[in-house]
Amino acid sequence: MPVTSDDGLRRLLDMTPVAVIGCSSTPGKAAHEIPKYLQRHGYRVVPVNPTADEILGEPAYDRLADVPDDVELVDVFRPSSEVGGIVDQVLARRDDRGDVAAVWLQLGIRDDEAASRAEDAGLDVVQDKCMKVEHSRLLG
Score class of each variant (00 low, 15 high):
M1P: 11
M1K: 08
P2V: 12
V3W: 05
T4R: 13
T4G: 12
T4Y: 08
D6T: 09
D7H: 11
D7M: 04
D7F: 12
R11D: 14
L12K: 03
L13N: 03
D14Y: 14
M15N: 13
T16S: 12
P17C: 02
P17F: 01
P17S: 04
V18C: 06
V18M: 13
A19V: 10
A19H: 03
I21M: 14
G22P: 09
C23G: 04
S24W: 00
S25Y: 15
G28E: 02
K29N: 09
K29M: 11
A31F: 09
A31M: 06
I34S: 00
I34M: 00
P35F: 02
K36R: 14
L38Y: 10
Q39H: 00
G42E: 04
Y43F: 12
R44V: 11
P47Y: 02
P47V: 02
P50M: 03
A52P: 04
E54L: 02
E54D: 04
E54N: 07
I55V: 01
E58Q: 12
E58F: 05
A60L: 03
Y61I: 09
D62R: 15
A65K: 12
P68E: 05
D70V: 14
D70Y: 13
V71P: 06
V71L: 10
E72K: 13
E72G: 14
E72Y: 10
L73D: 06
L73V: 08
V74T: 01
V74I: 10
V74R: 07
D75Q: 00
D75K: 01
D75V: 09
V76C: 12
V76F: 03
P79Y: 10
P79L: 10
S80Y: 07
E82L: 15
V83I: 09
V83Y: 07
G85F: 02
G85D: 02
I86V: 04
D88Y: 00
D88H: 06
Q89V: 11
V90M: 01
L91V: 03
L91F: 05
A92Y: 03
R93Y: 01
R94C: 06
D95S: 13
D95L: 08
D96Q: 13
D96I: 07
D96M: 13
D96W: 14
R97T: 08
G98P: 03
G98F: 01
G98V: 00
D99E: 05
V100T: 08
V100H: 00
A101G: 15
A102N: 07
A102Q: 10
A102S: 08
V103A: 02
V103H: 07
W104L: 08
W104Q: 01
Q106H: 09
G108C: 08
I109R: 02
R110F: 14
R110V: 13
D111S: 07
D112E: 14
E113R: 13
A114T: 00
A115T: 06
S116L: 15
S116G: 15
R117A: 02
R117N: 05
A118L: 07
A118I: 10
E119V: 09
A121K: 11
A121I: 11
A121W: 06
L123V: 01
V125E: 01
Q127F: 12
D128C: 09
D128N: 14
D128R: 04
M131T: 15
M131N: 12
K132M: 15
K132N: 10
E134D: 03
H135K: 05
S136E: 14
S136D: 14
S136H: 13
L138N: 03
L138Y: 05
L139W: 07
